[in-house]
Design a protein around this nucleic acid. Structure first.
Lengths: 144, 144
DNA sequence: GCGAAATCTTGACTCATTCCAGAAAGCGGG
DNA sequence: CCCGCTTTCTGGAATGAGTCAAGATTTCGC
């Protein structure tokens, strides 16, 4: 967290054009971990009131394709994006309120990357989602 | 596969009413592993041409709630259902064609259920999705 | 067979995401 | 610094999975 992130440079390094919307989207994803598209759109519009939702969707796709952000979408949820990429971490999702938290890989490296029987598939990534209740919801117990 | 599945009885055991649509839906999910809602709807209509999509959605929800079928939804895909439940297995999804295959849990029991740091969450299930290319797609290599 | 309660039919509706066409902006060359 | 080509953005309509609601049916216990 010590170094200030240079979003424009990150875009350049990824061979993407540096546009205002993209810089704002990249910043929003870094500022709002696990935010859904709508939240990102709102955050982006705080500095660029004129952006169209289409620009955000497009930027998100471009950034995802370039590996600058990661797209996650737990069952029953809309698409969410996060900025932690390439560090093999997973997520815990609360069944009740839907919050998402990061979890570093249980075994350290990339253990889950080894399936018992890969059926001939060429596996390049293992995605793990833990389901349960967050502290708040498990305390509140049965919220009506 | 030796024993004929008694769908009506399965419904009864789950404390669900036995209705024609539900039996058909349950049968369809067993017959078409990893099928999306639309495929299931089509399969169900082969024996019950009159069913509404609403009935299928409702049945699917009821069956999911009762634990008779499991709902899975890889990022970027529509909801899919499968009949293998309670045996802690995971999935491999082809990035190219989207096919899904079952994989038994790599470590045997429920290893992935242990996150390194659960952030206070009460975890009750770990869902693992392996991403890669299926045999066909990895052979075809770069399909335009 | 009867009646209460859950389930199904029909059809409208929401909402995330995508598609399109034209306008605007970014980038490399002069 | 300006030009032109190409990519990206704007604005708005379209798509499609999934949900909501009201009334007609069906299931199940008796």
């Amino acid at each position: 967290m010590a170094k200030a992130l240079d979003y424009p440079q990150m875009l350049r390094d990824a061979a993407l054009r540096v546009t205002r919307p993209r810089v704002a989207v990249l910043g929003a994803v870094h500022a709002l971990p696990h935010a859904d598209t709508d939240s990102i759109l709102g955050a982006v519009r705080e500095e660029l009131p004129e952006v169209s939702h289409q620009a955000v969707y497009d930027s998100l796709h471009a950034l995802t394709g370039a590996g600058l952000v990661r797209r996650i979408q737990p069952t029953g949820s809309v698409a969410r994006y996060e900025s932690r990429v390439g560090d093999n971490h997973h997520h815990v999702v609360c069944r009740s309120c839907g919050v998402i938290a990061d979890v570093d890989c249980a075994v350290g490296e990339a253990p889950c990357l080894t399936a018992s029987d890969d059926h001939g598939f060429t596996i390049d990534e293992a995605e793990v989602i833990y389901w349960g209740l967050c502290p708040d919801c498990s305390t509140t117990a049965h919220s009506s």
